[in-house]
């Protein structure tokens, strides 16, 4: 019990951060008209591509003689880029159509 309490107080800021982010996510989506659900899902899909930041960070720390790690890192950055670029571009294409009336 005490260890759990300690854990909570140690990571107090992080817990606040997570809780508030969860509410922001819910707040941001709430009340969106159905017509925009698909683009919104696609836009959110692009945003979780932020995982690429982690991939780049790992890659920058890789030992350049570790070829397996270099290959995996390259693949991770590549996949992350696909997620980010493809996600934003396809969302833009969808939204472009809503613009012209």
């Amino acid at each position: 019990m005490e260890s759990i309490l300690n854990l909570i107080s140690e990571h107090r800021e992080m817990i606040y951060f997570v809780l508030l982010s969860v509410f922001v996510g819910i707040e941001v989506i709430g009340g969106v008209p159905t017509v925009l659900h698909t683009p919104l899902m696609s836009g959110a899909n692009a945003i979780h591509g932020v995982v690429i930041v982690g991939a780049i960070y790992v890659m920058l720390n890789v030992d350049p003689t570790d070829y397996l790690a270099l290959a995996l890192g390259f693949l991770a950055v590549l996949l992350g880029t696909l997620n980010v670029v493809g996600g934003f571009v396809v969302t833009d294409r969808m939204l472009e159509m809503f613009k012209k009336k």
């Binding site: 922001v24 996510g25 979780h48």
Partner: peptide, 13 residues
Amino acid sequence: IMLTGGILVGSAG
């Protein structure tokens, strides 16, 4: 930024 982006999409999704 990974935390914000990730949790945002996690809860919104």
